[in-house]
Amino acid sequence: MAAPLLDSMISGPDRLIRALGVLAGTLLLAACGAREVVVQGNFPEPLMDPLPITLGVVYSDAFAQHEIFDEAAGRAETDWLVKTGDAQVEFWNTLFGGMFQDVIRITDHDSLHARESEIDAVIIPYVADLQYTIPLHTNVKVYEIWMKYRFRLVPVTAVHDHENGDLTIDPAEQFADWTLTAYGKTPTAFLQSDEEAVNLAAVVALRDAGANFATSFTRVPGVKAWMDGDTESFDGE
């Protein structure tokens, strides 16, 4: 109510000057603020014969809320905040759902113990590293994202819940512990903002991570040994 009243009290030229001032201020603040990308995309379900495994999945808070903040190195640059957490969870849920016969997400005490006897193994993904480049950094007309994941495959007995609701993993008890990398790039395009391009590169990188995981999972030595029934060959032993 106050705003229209205030507007009616300002004469024409004053209003124009005021509007220009607001616009200039907004542009100035936009230039100073961090550029934020919340990664979003549509991820297809993998076309695979599902492995006969009931897999438990634990997404740590660090994974489910993963983000990278890159502070500007100079005046010509701006801060960047790239949030991948939601997209990571959505993507890996879709991938695991298509790759394995059954997938049970373990979030707390109840979900851990509800179907504990059915779970063959529990997987815990981590984002070990994430790097990105934009044309401003490299003078190459390509936006790139590089990610390094770490996966741990453990028996369900290695997952412990605590009174405060936290889940911990016993590092001594595991089938496999391995890393994989993923890369995504997208070229510059007309009328495409930096944020859109970084988002697209992140989606390509996630898809690449999924392709890498899907085609290499059964070849990871610890996983292969476990699937062959050699349960004594824990990596930790």
Binding site: P44, E45, P46, L47, R207, D208, G210, A211, N212, T215
Partner: peptide, 12 residues
Amino acid sequence: INMMYPWFEPRT
């Protein structure tokens, strides 16, 4: 590419 995922990604 989407209907055949992950078999026609650049890596695969």
